[in-house]
């Protein structure tokens, strides 16, 4: 937010600048997680129902977060913060469980072992997302004459 004067009118700031990269990363994860869960549930749901349901849940959370960050306005921001918080809790809980009780996760999800199969991006992404949204809402709260 070094140069608010260059930004477009209104509250579209969340998806511009670094936010644009964030939306791209979230969109790719939304697509990847949803597609993966879709294939798993359609072809071999019986093998690891818990893991596949979690994959599907992760996919939905990523979709909601993507839309939440990409859309402007306070409500969208709240939706984004809520979904990213769910994502952070999810990756921490599922990550810990998949290490403590590997038998419960016979097949991987995006969140297994804190997202190690995805270069730990699932662990870093919600932290970056929350920091970015906090920055955007602060910049909006500050009076820009």
């Amino acid at each position: 937010m070094s140069d608010p004067a260059r930004r477009p009118e209104g509250a579209a700031a969340a998806r511009s600048g670094p936010g644009r990269v964030l939306v791209a990363v979230y969109a790719v994860f939304a697509l990847a997680a949803t597609a993966r869960a879709g294939v798993q549930i359609a072809t071999r749901f019986d093998e690891a129902p818990l893991a596949y349901v979690l994959s599907a849940l992760a996919g939905v959370v990523y979709i909601v977060a993507t839309v939440g960050i990409a859309r402007s306005g306070r409500t969208s921001r709240r939706v984004a913060v809520a979904s990213i918080t769910v994502e952070l809790v999810g990756v921490l809980v599922v990550g810990a469980l998949s290490i403590l009780d590997p038998a419960a996760f016979p097949d991987d999800t995006v969140w297994s072992r804190f997202g190690s199969g995805y270069l730990f991006i699932p662990l870093v992404l919600p932290v970056l997302g929350l920091l970015w949204l906090r920055r955007v809402s602060r910049a909006e709260a500050a009076p820009t004459a």
């Binding site: 600048g17 644009r20 969109a27």
Partner: peptide, 16 residues
């Protein structure tokens, strides 16, 4: 998506 952003963050999207 990257081309619409007319700052340095456009190419950053493509790099990702």
């Amino acid at each position: 998506w990257g081309f619409v952003e007319r700052t340095r963050w456009g190419p950053a999207v493509i790099a990702f």
